[in-house]
Each structure stands twice: as structure tokens, then as C-alpha cells.
């Protein structure tokens, strides 16, 4: 469906700064845990979990990474819901986050079965994408499954939002977009256009520009 993803910053790894003044102790503790202590499934049931893994895989596909290098997303979603972490907002037209997630994943699965006779997790990637796109358009056919849950709001404000909120705090994601990452006590000196400190990602390789 789409061309493979290439980061503009192939040589940059934010974790190379682990022992530098860009990281302080508490940041090392927090990111260390994120890397080492991936939580087990406690909130979703097995079927919801399979659907969730498939959804995460379509929202943030990571084909260029080996399986053990892929950024885990579903475990953190599960943990947040298990721990009742909360986001501060429950839209009036939605059930609580915990109920929305369970119902929503069931509904995505139901949508796949109504449309294609298969579980969502069993669909081909491009078919999964099409199902998710339809949900985002509010074009749902598994009517009952969506009762009381607006598909588009569920998909954008819970599914997409919470997935990117987990993916883009991972060092691998920071590195791929060239974000400076942790910065305390050391911040930045050079603030100007195209001005880069030595502890930042070197200038990116952008399509259409000559690599020198």
C-alpha cells in the first residue's frame, strides 16, 4: 500500500546520550523501566488482546524492525487501563475509557466479521487498514456492537491518540524523527535555523537533497 518508511536520521540514537548530561537520574529510571519492564496483559481478554495487537500493528507498522526490536504498545495500553490511570476527559457521548476500550475492540472485531467473515487479527494488512478507515469515517456495519460508542471518536480520541502517546515516547521513535529527547540538565545552545548542537541528531537526509 505504501512505500517503506525510512528515517531521515539513520545514524542517530537518542540512547547514545544515556550517560551524558542530557539524561538525569530520574529520566534514566523512567526510560529504563520503559525499556526493561514491559508489563504483562492484565486488563483485556485474549481475543481483545489479539485485536489490539493487530490494531497497534496497523496504526504503527514496524516492518523494518526485528520482532524483538519492535516498540511494544499494547502492553502499556493494557497497563494504563488496568491501573485506572485516566486521562482527565471522558466525552459525554462515550462510556468510561475502560468500557470504551473493551467495547471498541470487540466492535472492531465484529466489524471485521460482518465485512469479511474473519476476526480482525486474521485479516490481511490492507484489509485491516480498510476496516479501520471505514470506522474512522463512521461507516460501520456491526451496528449493535457500536451501541453507545461513536466509532470515529473512539478511533481517533482513544485508539489513535493513546497509541501515538505511547509510541512516540519510546527512544526508538524519538530517534527516528530526530527529536532531541531527554534534555536535563543539559538543554541546547544553538537555537537558530539549521543550527545543531553536537549532541543532537546530525542533519537529516531528506528526499530531493544531495547527500554530501
Amino acid at each position: 500500500m505504501s512505500t517503506p518508511f525510512r528515517t531521515p536520521y539513520p545514524t542517530y540514537n537518542v540512547l547514545d546520550k544515556w550517560d551524558s548530561p542530557s539524561f538525569n537520574d530520574q529520566t534514566r529510571e523512567v526510560i529504563g523501566r520503559r525499556l526493561d519492564e514491559v508489563p504483562p496483559r492484565r486488563f483485556f481478554d485474549a481475543i481483545q488482546w489479539a485485536t489490539l495487537l493487530a490494531v497497534c500493528n496497523r496504526v504503527i507498522p514496524q516492518p523494518e524492525r526485528r520482532h524483538d526490536e519492535r516498540v511494544p504498545i499494547a502492553p502499556w495500553l493494557d497497563a494504563a487501563l488496568h491501573e485506572r490511570r485516566g486521562t482527565g476527559t471522558r466525552y459525554a457521548d462515550m462510556p468510561t475509557d475502560r468500557r470504551s476500550w473493551k467495547q471498541g475492540l470487540d466492535a472492531i472485531d465484529a466489524e471485521a466479521r460482518v465485512r469479511h467473515g474473519l476476526r480482525f487479527a486474521a485479516l490481511a494488512a490492507d484489509v485491516q487498514d480498510a476496516v479501520l478507515k471505514a470506522i474512522d469515517d463512521g461507516d460501520v456495519r456491526a451496528g449493535e456492537a457500536w451501541a453507545g460508542l461513536p466509532p470515529k471518536r473512539f478511533f481517533r480520541h482513544l485508539v489513535l491518540k493513546e497509541i501515538v502517546r505511547i509510541y512516540y515516547v519510546h527512544p526508538a521513535a524519538m530517534s527516528e524523527v530526530g527529536y532531541g529527547g531527554p534534555a536535563s540538565p543539559r538543554g541546547y545552545v544553538r537555537l537558530g535555523v539549521d543550527a545543531i548542537d553536537p549532541w543532537e541528531a546530525p542533519r537529516g537526509r531528506w528526499p530531493g537533497e544531495n547527500d554530501e
Binding site: 535555523v193 539549521d194 543550527a195 545543531i196 553536537p198 546530525p202 542533519r203
Partner: peptide, 16 residues
């Protein structure tokens, strides 16, 4: 016009 036309990557050497 761009503020800078410089296409130099990060400094080739450090402050030290």
C-alpha cells in the same frame, strides 16, 4: 528566501 543556506551538518568537532 531561507534564513540560512548553510547545509553543514553538525559541527565536525566538539567544544573541547
Amino acid at each position: 528566501a531561507h534564513v540560512s543556506n548553510t547545509r553543514r551538518t553538525t559541527s565536525r568537532f566538539a567544544l573541547g
